[in-house]
Amino acid sequence: MLNGTLRVARFHLTLYRRTWRATTFTSFLMPLLYLGVVGIGAGSYVENDVEGFSYVQFLAPGLLAVVAFQTAAEEAGFPLYAAIRLTDRYQRMLTAPLSLGQVLAGHLFFITIRAAVSAAVFCAVAALLGVFDSWLCLLLVPVAMVVALAAAAPLFAFTARLTSSANLMTVSRLVVLPLSMFSGVFFPVEDLPAAVQPLIRISPLWHGVELCRGLSGAFTAGSGTAPSFLAGHLGVLLLWAAVGFALTLLVFRRHLSD
């Protein structure tokens, strides 16, 4: 099982070594642009602390989770659609001695690696800018990987069902963008209308944001995090990943076999 998964991941990494330049903007520059413009620019007008952080320190861990989330959404969008509907790459992989589970797990593993690289670059720049007080912020990178997994797996199931690429744009505008903007990254979820809050609290991104922010507080201010806090959020993220993976397998079995 593991060997096949690693081979698939290595296939994706080999491709990515050639094509990573095309993702420079979305993976590396866009989060830093938001950090500068919203965190430092608009943040200079936020007078009070937000949940005990200065605004830019409130924003940065949230943006880290967004980086992972958007990387996952990007990979689970057109690249996956193309691989199953246009180039038949998945179908061709399956003619090798690989199981469907291995092909999927390998692709997901590659996505978590991509998220880790983007997150690490973001952390390093934020630490250099003094937004994170301590290099311990690099410990947030594994959290970003879990967020990417929890977002990619259910989106895989969605993309696998599509028969036209037109709906991909709609997903990115109706799901990815609103979640990125309203999951407590830019302002606390409590400021949203009460009716929307429960919806946001389900999303993997919100759990990722809470986790990153809680841990960054623990690393920088030594405020400590309760084990139940960690276990709760991590549990929801892993649940999303597991349910998404199972659903994707189901959808693939039904649609990819014919």
Partner: peptide
């Protein structure tokens, strides 16, 4: 950005 951050 407008209304959410507007509160802050």
């Amino acid at each position: 950005l407008g209304m959410g951050m507007g509160r802050l």
